[in-house]
Amino acid sequence: MKYLFSELGKKVLESLSFTQTLYAFDYDGTLAPIVDDPEAAKATKETERLLNQLSMVASVVVISGRSVADLRRRTALHVNRLIGNHGLEGLGVHRESITNSESTCYKWVQALKRSWGTLKKDPGVFIEDKTYSLALHYRRSRQKQVVRRVLFAKINKLEPQPRVILGKSVINLIPKEGPHKGMALLEAMSKLNLRCAFYIGDDDTDEDVFSLGGSQQIISARVGQKKASQAKFYIKRQSEMNRLLRRLIELNEFRGET
């Protein structure tokens, strides 16, 4: 993994601006800083302004685990596409797949609520129902290890079994037939007719993008260095995001002038 603002990283970023590239961003932990209460997560005004400016000179999408309605509520982004629920919303996925995911998630919520038991006493643990996927948050719990074990025991009893993706103190439950962020990025590239993409994200749900191969050219970066990650580049922390956005704007504006 190389630092994105190293000599090599800067050259790769520059070469992305020589062609039509799709710039794709995760939301929580990437555009918005991680906060204790996921409901309070929000990109700064400056980040939003820079992202909107970038979308005027290049193709930009946001791919998040949040629902599109939730993203719209908390942001004022004017990007090409807001893709929600790990790719289930915002790309025109088949209606049948959406209906199935909705009914599966409803069943899971009911089952989890019935068996919530002792977790009711912990206000730091809660279910976020995103209609087409669920997120079990425990960031504010004082007994993270114990809660995590209890949650996994409950998840193991769910029918049908979900696809589990771990985030930062959050367990994402996604219907197995649903897409993932990697598929969402490929679909967005195809819809926008672009062969090249840059993607940046911060947690395990983004590994589905980092590990993409094939004929498409995807340059990936992670917020925070992690040896086990498949991302090729990293930025040190979320607060470097605005620096990255400014650089991308500069490079793509320059392309427009040549």
Partner: peptide
Amino acid sequence: LVQYYLLMMLRDMPGC
């Protein structure tokens, strides 16, 4: 001509 073609292809495949 070959060099031109290689660079042209490479332009659309950054980091390949």
